[in-house]
């Protein structure tokens, strides 16, 4: 399992009903492409996060199938409509089977 993998997300604490907010996510990961060679010309095995999913109250916001062309420490920024108060859930899937998860609550501004 990859070590030191840490997800971070930025979600506004509140929104109005129907508001379109911007969500940002970062996860520390070297995203080894599987295309590089080491000092003795041996291929360094691929080790990447290959899938990212963001959901709100169980509804899909965005899903990304990731290839080795995604930079290390993968970053995503996207929009989401906020239909109600609830929870954003973010999940990253690693080649090695690891799953990294985090979530954020959002409330409705009165």
């Amino acid at each position: 399992m990859a070590t030191g993998v840490k997800p971070r997300v930025k979600v506004p604490k509140t929104a109005t009903v129907g508001e379109v907010i911007t969500v940002k996510t970062l996860i520390s990961h070297k995203m080894e492409s599987g295309l590089r060679k080491d000092e003795v010309d041996a291929i360094i095995p691929r080790s990447i996060i290959n899938r990212f999913v963001a959901e709100f109250n169980g509804q899909l916001v965005i899903e990304v199938a990731m290839e080795p062309g995604i930079s290390s420490n993968p970053y995503f920024q996207f929009e989401s409509v906020v239909p109600e108060a609830g929870t954003f859930r973010f999940t990253w899937y690693d080649d090695d089977g690891s799953i990294y998860e985090t979530s954020k609550e959002i409330t409705i501004a009165s």
Partner: peptide, 13 residues
Amino acid sequence: LLRVATFRFGALN
């Protein structure tokens, strides 16, 4: 590797 990523958008985006 030509494909970099594939995004799928849900109803909330």
